[in-house]
C-alpha cells in the first residue's frame, strides 16, 4: 500500500509527465485553450494510459519476457497502443454513445501522444515487472500509468485555466500566442519543482 502511494504521488506531482518529463507537450500546448476541452482530453488520456499500462505490462510479463523478446518492446508497445486506441473508439461508439460523445473526439489525438508510449516504456524501465510477483508488478504499472495520466490532467487543466485568464491581459506583441504559453508552462514547472521534497 505504501509503495502504491509513493508511486501515485511521485508520478502525478513530483515527476509530472508534462512539466518535468516533457512527454505529451503537443496536446498540452494545443488542446489547452478552454478548461472544458482540457478536462475532456485529460479524461481520455487517463482512460487510455491506464488501459494501455495494463495491457502492455501484461504483454511484457507473459509474452515478451518468457520468450526473451524484451528488446522488441518498442515495436510491440506502439502497435498495441495504436490498435488499442482504435478499438476503444469503436467499442465506445457502439456500446456507450454518451461516453463516446464526451471522450471520442480526443481519442484519435492520443495515438501518437508520446506520453502513452512513454509510460509503457517507463513501467518496464522502472523494473516493476522484474522482481517480485507478476501480479503486483502489473498493479504497480497500472498505478503508475493512472498517476502519470492524472498528472497530465492536472497540468493541462491548470494550464487551460490560466490561458482563459491570459486572453484578457495585455501581453507584449511578440509574446502573443505560443511564447506566452511556454512562459506560463515554465512558471508552472517551477511551481511543480516545489513538490520534489515530498518523497
Amino acid at each position: 500500500m505504501k509503495t502504491l502511494l509513493v508511486i501515485l504521488i511521485g508520478s502525478a506531482l513530483v515527476n509530472n509527465v508534462v512539466l518535468s518529463q516533457f512527454l505529451g507537450i503537443c496536446p498540452f500546448l494545443g488542446v489547452s485553450k478552454k478548461t472544458s476541452t482540457a478536462a475532456g482530453m485529460g479524461a481520455a488520456v487517463i482512460f487510455v494510459i491506464t488501459l494501455s499500462s495494463l495491457i502492455t505490462s501484461a504483454l511484457y510479463a507473459f509474452i515478451l519476457k518468457p520468450l526473451d523478446l524484451t528488446y522488441l518492446n518498442t515495436i510491440v508497445f506502439i502497435l498495441v497502443i495504436a490498435a488499442l486506441v482504435q478499438l476503444v473508439e469503436m467499442i465506445l461508439k457502439k456500446y456507450s454513445p454518451a461516453l463516446y460523445k464526451s471522450l471520442g473526439v480526443y481519442l484519435p489525438l492520443i495515438t501518437t501522444n508520446c506520453a502513452v508510449l512513454g509510460v509503457a516504456l517507463l513501467n518496464v524501465q522502472n523494473g516493476y515487472l522484474d522482481k517480485g510477483s507478476v501480479a503486483i508488478g502489473i498493479i504497480k504499472s497500472v498505478a503508475n500509468g493512472f498517476a502519470t495520466a492524472l498528472g497530465f490532467t492536472i497540468a493541462i487543466v491548470i494550464m487551460a485555466g490560466i490561458r482563459e485568464r491570459i486572453e484578457y491581459n495585455d501581453i507584449p506583441q511578440s509574446f502573443k500566442g505560443t511564447p506566452i504559453v511556454l512562459i506560463t508552462a515554465g512558471l508552472m514547472a517551477i511551481a511543480f519543482i516545489g513538490f520534489s521534497g515530498i518523497i
Binding site: P179, G186, A189
Partner: peptide, 11 residues
C-alpha cells in the same frame, strides 16, 4: 532544469 527549457523556447 525543466523550466529553463520552456523559457528558452519561449524566448
Amino acid at each position: 532544469m525543466a523550466p529553463g527549457a520552456f523559457f528558452v523556447l519561449a524566448g
